[in-house]
Design a protein around this nucleic acid. Structure first.
Lengths: 129, 129
DNA sequence: ATAACTGCAAACGGTTTGCAAGTCT
DNA sequence: AGACTTGCAAACCGTTTGCAGTTAT
């Protein structure tokens, strides 16, 4: 895994991603970055997103097949979950953990948990009004 | 929403689904049912799965785009979560639930939770050995 | 009779890939 | 120079849809 190179496309992508607050799809990103880099190809967006996901910078929120994957900027250094607003699609993080405790899972089910995905759906502050 | 009709295809599908223990994809189901109903179309499988999901009989475990959705037989009458084995693909249910208390979410994030989805990945009892 | 269901094939949307050309180091 | 990156277009995969024919009620 080589060190990423500093290309115009990569810079533009990182720039736009850094300015995002909520979740976005590859196409969202494509459209946004294209305004400043019209020749950007969609494939490059996907390749960059994959890489950022591997690096732990982004987290992929997989939806059902047929709908596009979405990504959120994600600090992997602390454990957190996502609050996904069904009204406006925004995503925020919370430190409150929504997963069954590992010890209890082991005891009652013999199940050794390695990771969990606990996303909470509902309405964010603005949409709740 | 009309009452479903009793057709040969539907019967065969329900039959195979009922005998399943773990999670399965539409294609898994298609292959299995085809052995007894060779003329079955894949579209019918999808249409039936959609319907069963709406009826709460199945739950769809969405993967990332590009990979197929999988389904599990699901009793919607009681709250539960899934323990998904990354070794053998089996899925079991647990009643253990540690969802963040709604009051806390409301207070700290202004977020009104309506539902949550907490799937835990890891190794089941047999695979852990 | 008629509303629902089916198979087929074609369309679809999102994502990935092969490749020749271009670019960072 | 040489490895990496890019754009483009075509391929890919799972899923959905239009439609004409069939079937349960």
């Amino acid at each position: 895994m080589p060190t990423p190179r500093t290309t115009a496309q990569r810079t533009a992508l990182l720039d736009v991603i850094g300015a995002r607050r909520g979740a976005f799809s590859a196409l969202d990103l494509f459209d946004a970055v294209r305004e400043r880099a019209p020749r950007l190809g969609l494939a490059t967006v996907y390749r960059t997103l994959d890489r950022l996901e591997q690096d732990g910078v982004l987290r992929r929120l997989g939806g059902s097949a047929g709908s596009a994957d979405r990504f959120v900027v994600c600090d992997p250094s602390h454990h957190h979950h996502h609050l996904i607003c069904t009204g406006c699609g925004s995503v925020e993080e919370t430190e409150l953990c929504a997963a069954p405790p590992e010890g209890e899972l082991k005891r009652r089910h013999g199940f050794v948990a390695t990771s969990h995905q606990a996303d909470v759906y509902g309405l964010c502050r603005s949409c709740a009004a």
